[in-house]
Simulated scan of single mutants.
Amino acid sequence: MFTRTTQVEIQFGDCDPAGIVYYPNYFRFFDNATAALLSAAFAMHKRNWLEHFGIAGIPMVDTGARFIKPSRFGDVVDIRSEITELGRSSFSVRHTLLRDGEVAIEAHEKRVWVVRNEAGDIRSAPLPEDVRRLLSAS
């Protein structure tokens, strides 16, 4: 399925007093990596694909990570993101964060394709066939 690698330079503000990345910031990195993955698959920026597909967003319904090695201010890490599963209205992403070519974090997330109803509430919607095709590409 579709894969993309995003490079991130760890900033001072990403770190805690111990000098390592404060763990919630990894989830921010992964959220950005998912947006970059979909933007690459759809060949357009997130603000454009939200409008193009008429969706409210792709909220996360499940996430988790296994932390293997810490990263510090100034490190440059690669986040390899891959679509691993396509459901009716959901998709799963696996993130592998590499530091110096070694696995530092393995993470996963499940997201839902959502639209707004007449009242403005969000509800899941089936993944469009062209989205399925693009996310299934190697």
Rank of each mutant, 00 (worst) to 15 (best):
T63S: 00
V61P: 03
L97P: 14
A119Y: 08
A107T: 01
I20C: 07
S92H: 12
E102A: 13
K69M: 09
K110N: 14
R94C: 11
K69Y: 14
L127S: 05
H45Y: 10
S90G: 10
M44A: 11
D130C: 10
R80H: 12
E85C: 07
V76D: 03
A104F: 02
R88T: 15
Y26K: 02
L134G: 05
R28S: 00
Q11D: 07
H108N: 12
I68P: 02
L37R: 07
F42V: 07
G64K: 00
N48D: 15
R133Y: 03
V61Y: 00
L50I: 15
M1R: 02
E51P: 04
T84Y: 00
F91S: 04
N32K: 09
P128H: 09
S81D: 10
R99P: 03
E118M: 07
R88C: 14
V21A: 01
F12I: 15
G74F: 08
V114S: 07
L134M: 14
E9A: 14
G74C: 07
I68M: 13
A36F: 12
D100R: 07
E51K: 15
A18C: 04
F67E: 10
V93M: 09
M60K: 13
V93R: 11
K46I: 05
S136L: 08
F30L: 15
S136Y: 01
T84I: 04
W49F: 13
G120D: 11
I79F: 11
K69S: 11
V131T: 01
P126E: 10
T84M: 04
M44I: 09
R99T: 05
H108C: 09
R132Y: 02
D130W: 05
R94H: 13
P59L: 14
R72M: 15
A35V: 00
I79Y: 04
F42P: 03
S90H: 06
Q7G: 09
F42L: 15
S81F: 14
E129H: 00
V103N: 07
V21M: 02
E106H: 10
H108I: 07
F53P: 04
V103S: 01
E102D: 14
F42M: 13
Y22I: 04
D62F: 02
F73Q: 11
I58F: 14
Q7L: 13
E82C: 07
A36S: 13
I58Q: 06
M44T: 10
V76Q: 10
G87A: 10
Q11F: 02
I55M: 13
R111C: 08
F42Q: 09
I10K: 00
V115P: 06
V61D: 01
L97K: 15
D100H: 06
S89R: 12
D62T: 03
L98K: 13
R132G: 03
H45V: 12
A125N: 12
A119L: 11
P24C: 03
R99V: 07
P59W: 02
F73P: 00
T5Q: 08
E82M: 11
V76G: 01
L37Q: 03
A104K: 01
S124D: 14
